[in-house]
Simulated assay, not measured.
Amino acid sequence: MKSSQYLTFLILILTIALGCSDDDTTTVPETNENAANQQPLGSSAAELLSSEDFTSMRVEIAYPQGFRPTQQTLDLLLPFLEERLDKPDGITMVESIITTDETGPYDINEIVAIEDANRTVFNNGDELGVWLFFSDERSEGDSGNSVVLGSAYRNTSMVIYEKTFIDIANNSTTPVNRTLIETSTIRHEFGHIFGLVNVGTPDLSAHEDLDNLRHCNVEDCLMYFQTVTNSFNTSSLESIPDFDDLCIQDLQANGGL
């Protein structure tokens, strides 16, 4: 089946897998000067959410030439973060155009290698650093009619498989709102580095989906396991779900807004 035919078929049956559960990387030795940003997923949830240790945050938006997300996607990111993070000294974003030396499709070890070779924003004094990589290759986890759109894999690191978004948008026979699916995926993955669900931010009540760990069992929550899949069924940015009340209560109890 040719690529364009495959992607059209994919849109129709819409089986989207978020790579959230199996991509944790191991802790690095503390002698590494950047070790604080290379810890397990969820371990910096309180630091991200509260102002106790870090009063500001800087997000590095990294992408190879030609794989920048839409401007509207970037415009929507900052207010989303400001709504939930207690950072009185502000949240800023810096863009980095990088070169990748790995061969795709990427497994998580290759994603880590790209980060380690290119990341420039780390924790610095009272400023916490986050790495957000928009990939120029698809995920090795793609299989059959299922594709991986994004993965949070370290305490302050995530990857968005931008090539997959571009391929879907360019080859679908029906209109696809690329900003909507990018934004849904980014927000969902940020939810994971915020420690949701039950991965660094404790549950105040039992709402983890035990069949889809690290996800919320409330269907209209941002952290529901099919949130991004459902985004393909609409063209409205206003339809992107927010954290439900149970997730918000967990975030606030761990220092968030």
Results as ranks from 00 to 15, higher is better:
residue 3 S to I: 13
residue 6 Y to F: 05
residue 6 Y to D: 01
residue 6 Y to H: 10
residue 7 L to H: 13
residue 12 L to F: 12
residue 16 I to F: 09
residue 16 I to G: 03
residue 17 A to H: 12
residue 20 C to M: 14
residue 21 S to A: 15
residue 22 D to T: 14
residue 24 D to Y: 06
residue 29 P to D: 08
residue 33 E to Q: 12
residue 34 N to P: 06
residue 35 A to W: 14
residue 37 N to I: 02
residue 38 Q to E: 11
residue 46 A to L: 12
residue 46 A to C: 10
residue 50 S to W: 04
residue 50 S to N: 10
residue 53 D to C: 09
residue 55 T to Y: 01
residue 55 T to M: 02
residue 56 S to Y: 01
residue 56 S to K: 04
residue 58 R to P: 02
residue 59 V to D: 01
residue 63 Y to M: 06
residue 64 P to Y: 11
residue 67 F to W: 11
residue 68 R to G: 03
residue 68 R to P: 04
residue 70 T to D: 05
residue 76 L to I: 00
residue 77 L to T: 00
residue 82 E to S: 06
residue 84 R to F: 14
residue 85 L to S: 09
residue 85 L to I: 07
residue 85 L to C: 12
residue 88 P to L: 08
residue 90 G to C: 07
residue 94 V to S: 03
residue 105 P to N: 05
residue 106 Y to C: 10
residue 106 Y to W: 06
residue 107 D to F: 00
residue 108 I to M: 10
residue 109 N to T: 11
residue 110 E to G: 04
residue 111 I to Q: 06
residue 112 V to P: 04
residue 113 A to E: 10
residue 114 I to A: 02
residue 116 D to F: 06
residue 119 R to W: 05
residue 121 V to G: 00
residue 121 V to Q: 00
residue 123 N to Y: 04
residue 124 N to M: 00
residue 127 E to H: 02
residue 129 G to P: 04
residue 130 V to Q: 02
residue 131 W to D: 00
residue 133 F to I: 01
residue 140 E to W: 07
residue 142 D to N: 08
residue 144 G to W: 04
residue 145 N to F: 14
residue 146 S to V: 05
residue 147 V to H: 08
residue 148 V to T: 15
residue 149 L to A: 03
residue 154 R to I: 10
residue 158 M to R: 03
residue 160 I to S: 03
residue 161 Y to P: 04
residue 164 T to P: 03
residue 165 F to W: 01
residue 172 S to R: 13
residue 174 T to M: 15
residue 174 T to H: 15
residue 175 P to S: 11
residue 176 V to I: 15
residue 177 N to Q: 09
residue 178 R to C: 07
residue 184 S to H: 04
residue 185 T to A: 02
residue 189 E to R: 05
residue 194 F to Q: 14
residue 206 A to F: 10
residue 208 E to N: 07
residue 209 D to K: 03
residue 210 L to G: 07
residue 211 D to M: 06
residue 211 D to A: 03
residue 214 R to N: 13
residue 217 N to M: 07
residue 220 D to N: 14
residue 222 L to D: 06
residue 225 F to R: 03
residue 226 Q to D: 14
residue 226 Q to G: 10
residue 227 T to Y: 04
residue 229 T to Q: 13
residue 229 T to I: 04
residue 233 N to I: 09
residue 233 N to K: 09
residue 234 T to V: 03
residue 235 S to K: 13
residue 237 L to Y: 09
residue 238 E to K: 10
residue 238 E to V: 15
residue 240 I to L: 15
residue 245 D to G: 12
residue 246 L to Q: 10
residue 251 L to W: 11
residue 251 L to Q: 12
residue 252 Q to M: 14
residue 255 G to P: 11
residue 257 L to K: 12
